[in-house]
Computed example of a mutant assay.
Amino acid sequence: MNGDERAVEPTDDRVELGLALLERLEHESLPLPAVVDRIETVTTDPTVTRTILDQAELRGIIDREDGIVRPKSRQYVQFDRDVITKDGEFSCRRCGSGLSTGYFIDLDAGELGPYGSSCIRKVTGRE
């Protein structure tokens, strides 16, 4: 670790939220860049991203090999149960667009969002 990097505790809220998101990936396998794109909805800090991936592997949430990530769970985000909408003034957490309706993923570790209607589909793997 160089002087600019700080250790990230596995109990960091961003880590727990990232792990909860990875537990709900709706793919048999994904390339690592696609997984990092999803994690970037939680954090853009590379140290936290690395911690999320490492902890996901240690906790048995994913398998990683040769740039491919394989989720072990088959519990996907279900729109009718796990995605809630709220009206208000929001900025999409993924693309930054202004929103009057925000879509939020309700995970055990907390809410993740807001997202716009197309970004929520990308984050949850529907697109």
Rank of each mutant, 00 (worst) to 15 (best):
residue 2 N to K: 12
residue 4 D to R: 14
residue 4 D to N: 13
residue 5 E to V: 14
residue 5 E to M: 15
residue 6 R to L: 15
residue 9 E to M: 11
residue 9 E to C: 10
residue 11 T to P: 00
residue 11 T to D: 12
residue 11 T to E: 13
residue 13 D to W: 03
residue 14 R to V: 04
residue 15 V to D: 00
residue 16 E to A: 10
residue 16 E to F: 00
residue 17 L to F: 10
residue 18 G to V: 03
residue 18 G to R: 01
residue 20 A to E: 14
residue 21 L to A: 08
residue 22 L to H: 09
residue 22 L to G: 07
residue 22 L to F: 10
residue 23 E to R: 01
residue 23 E to Q: 04
residue 23 E to I: 00
residue 24 R to D: 06
residue 24 R to N: 06
residue 26 E to G: 14
residue 26 E to R: 13
residue 27 H to Y: 15
residue 27 H to K: 15
residue 27 H to A: 15
residue 28 E to I: 12
residue 29 S to K: 14
residue 29 S to R: 14
residue 31 P to Q: 08
residue 33 P to F: 09
residue 33 P to E: 13
residue 34 A to E: 14
residue 35 V to S: 07
residue 35 V to H: 05
residue 35 V to T: 08
residue 35 V to F: 03
residue 36 V to E: 09
residue 37 D to E: 11
residue 38 R to H: 01
residue 39 I to T: 01
residue 39 I to N: 01
residue 40 E to I: 05
residue 42 V to M: 04
residue 43 T to K: 02
residue 43 T to P: 02
residue 45 D to L: 07
residue 46 P to T: 03
residue 47 T to N: 05
residue 47 T to P: 00
residue 48 V to N: 07
residue 48 V to E: 08
residue 49 T to I: 15
residue 52 I to V: 12
residue 52 I to W: 00
residue 52 I to T: 01
residue 53 L to M: 13
residue 54 D to L: 13
residue 55 Q to V: 11
residue 55 Q to E: 13
residue 56 A to H: 01
residue 56 A to S: 06
residue 57 E to C: 02
residue 57 E to A: 12
residue 58 L to M: 08
residue 59 R to V: 11
residue 64 R to D: 00
residue 64 R to E: 09
residue 65 E to M: 01
residue 66 D to V: 03
residue 66 D to A: 11
residue 66 D to S: 15
residue 67 G to E: 08
residue 68 I to D: 00
residue 68 I to Q: 04
residue 71 P to I: 12
residue 72 K to L: 15
residue 73 S to K: 10
residue 74 R to S: 13
residue 74 R to D: 11
residue 74 R to L: 07
residue 75 Q to N: 08
residue 75 Q to S: 12
residue 76 Y to N: 03
residue 78 Q to T: 09
residue 79 F to Y: 15
residue 82 D to V: 02
residue 83 V to L: 08
residue 83 V to N: 06
residue 85 T to K: 05
residue 86 K to S: 08
residue 87 D to T: 14
residue 87 D to R: 15
residue 87 D to L: 12
residue 88 G to S: 06
residue 88 G to L: 05
residue 90 F to R: 11
residue 92 C to E: 02
residue 92 C to I: 01
residue 95 C to V: 05
residue 98 G to R: 08
residue 98 G to K: 10
residue 98 G to N: 04
residue 99 L to N: 09
residue 99 L to S: 02
residue 99 L to T: 07
residue 99 L to I: 04
residue 99 L to R: 02
residue 100 S to H: 10
residue 101 T to M: 05
residue 101 T to K: 13
residue 101 T to V: 13
residue 101 T to G: 08
residue 101 T to I: 14
residue 103 Y to A: 03
residue 104 F to Y: 09
residue 104 F to R: 01
residue 106 D to R: 15
residue 107 L to T: 09
residue 108 D to R: 10
residue 108 D to W: 05
residue 111 E to N: 12
residue 111 E to M: 06
residue 112 L to A: 02
residue 112 L to E: 01
residue 113 G to A: 06
residue 115 Y to L: 11
residue 116 G to H: 05
residue 116 G to I: 04
residue 117 S to E: 14
residue 117 S to W: 05
residue 118 S to W: 07
residue 118 S to C: 08
residue 120 I to T: 04
residue 121 R to M: 14
residue 121 R to G: 14
residue 121 R to Q: 15
residue 123 V to D: 03
residue 125 G to W: 02
residue 125 G to I: 03
residue 126 R to F: 13
residue 126 R to T: 14
